[in-house]
């Protein structure tokens, strides 16, 4: 896989496939919670859509679909594995 720039999970567009490469700000309460749902380094995440009035997006993580607020998805650093439509 070629190296691609890091981005935040919240920046993912619908259909983007990403690989988690770190969680920032581990002192915020969300870090443990993200780990519980299986969002750890190396996990593949697919952004499956955005909430109709924004502020929240849904991600497929380890076979389950979980919605996160953008502020929380901001703390997850990812690399793009493939873009929409690929």
């Amino acid at each position: 896989m070629t190296y691609k720039k890091e981005l935040r999970l919240s920046e993912a567009g619908k259909g983007d496939v990403l690989t988690v490469c770190g969680i920032r700000d581990p002192c915020r309460g969300i870090a443990g919670r993200l780990r519980d749902i299986g969002l750890t380094d190396g996990t593949h995440v697919v952004c499956v859509g955005h909430s109709p009035i924004g502020g929240m997006s849904a991600y497929e993580i380890r076979g389950a679909v979980i919605a996160l607020r953008n502020e929380d998805a901001d703390t997850v650093l990812c690399r793009r594995t493939s873009g929409a439509g690929s």
Partner: peptide
């Protein structure tokens, strides 16, 4: 401030 949470869409 609004706090963080995860919402599963089953």
């Amino acid at each position: 401030e609004p706090s963080s949470f995860t919402l599963e869409l089953p």
